[in-house]
């Protein structure tokens, strides 16, 4: 379970006026185990910054993050142990094979060689990556790279999974496969958070939706609750109304 409370983060401004840019302001939500929680918002809404605070890469200026009851500020290392992260940056080592890429992270998590091999077999089957598992990742397609990065993030069998725009740049078939993989993670009782700017995807997958725009939470709840709150029949209209702009649709 991941709990975010009143998170705030700003960055130094560029240019002459040098005003600090507030990227995330008072963002709070709860992501439960056995559920998929979606962060929905247009580009530049503050999704990636929020996620970076969740997976300990950034320290919030205000507010706190609890992962399975552990405060990120108190024991970031223990939190990272229970967290599988697919960051926005998902580069793989191109001179290593997909398997070696995954093994490296398994070793860094302190896993034994046997445990790593077992886990790779399982993930490779679930992500359909057996045919390129032992190829050097140089020249991989976007989908193959993303799959390798996801397997690498989940090698240590984490209870909580955070994915930053996992379907970005993937074709329809790969996206479908990835969706069923996320549902499988949910069925295993994990807490899954993912961000997206594609509304249909969030609607199809998520138990809870958090709409973020301009660094603030505009609304949150299940798909039905959001429609009700906005008084709109379709989620798309609800999203536009709740995020306060039309830009989300074109993003």
């Amino acid at each position: 379970m991941i709990l975010a409370e009143a998170l705030r983060k700003s960055f130094p401004g560029k240019g002459r006026d040098k005003q600090r840019v507030v990227a995330v302001d008072d963002v709070g939500f709860t992501a439960h185990d056995g559920q998929i929680t979606g962060l929905l918002g247009p580009n530049g809404a503050g999704k990636t910054t929020t996620l970076r605070m969740l997976y300990t890469l950034m320290t919030p200026e205000q507010g706190r993050v609890l992962v399975d009851g552990i405060d990120v500020a108190a024991d970031a290392e223990q939190v990272r142990r229970n967290l599988g992260v697919l960051p926005d940056a998902r580069g793989v080592y191109k001179r290593l094979t997909a398997r070696e890429n995954i093994e490296y992270f398994g070793q860094l998590h302190g896993m034994s060689a046997a445990a790593i091999a077992q886990r790779i077999a399982k993930l490779a089957a679930a992500l359909q990556m057996e045919d390129f598992l032992d190829r050097a990742t140089e020249g991989f397609s976007q989908g193959q790279r993303t799959k390798t990065a996801i397997a690498r993030a989940l090698v240590h069998d984490p209870k909580n999974v955070i994915l930053d725009e996992p379907t970005n740049g993937l074709d329809v078939m790969t996206t479908r496969g990835l969706r069923s993989f996320l549902k499988q993670l949910r069925a295993e009782g994990r807490c899954v958070i993912f961000s997206s700017h594609i509304m249909q995807e969030v609607a199809a997958l998520c138990d809870r939706i958090v709409i973020i725009a301009h660094g603030k939470v505009m609304a949150q709840g299940s798909s039905d609750e959001l429609r009700e709150a906005a008084g709109e029949a379709s989620l798309e209209d609800a999203f536009v109304k709740l995020s306060g702009s039309e830009e989300g649709l074109h993003a």
């Binding site: 997976y55 890469l57 697919l86 860094l108 302190g110």
Partner: peptide, 17 residues
């Protein structure tokens, strides 16, 4: 180089000091 190839951020999400 590792940062430019976008593999530093994933590496920093591991529990290694």
């Amino acid at each position: 180089g590792e940062r430019e190839r976008q593999s530093l951020e994933p590496l920093l999400t591991t529990p290694v000091a």
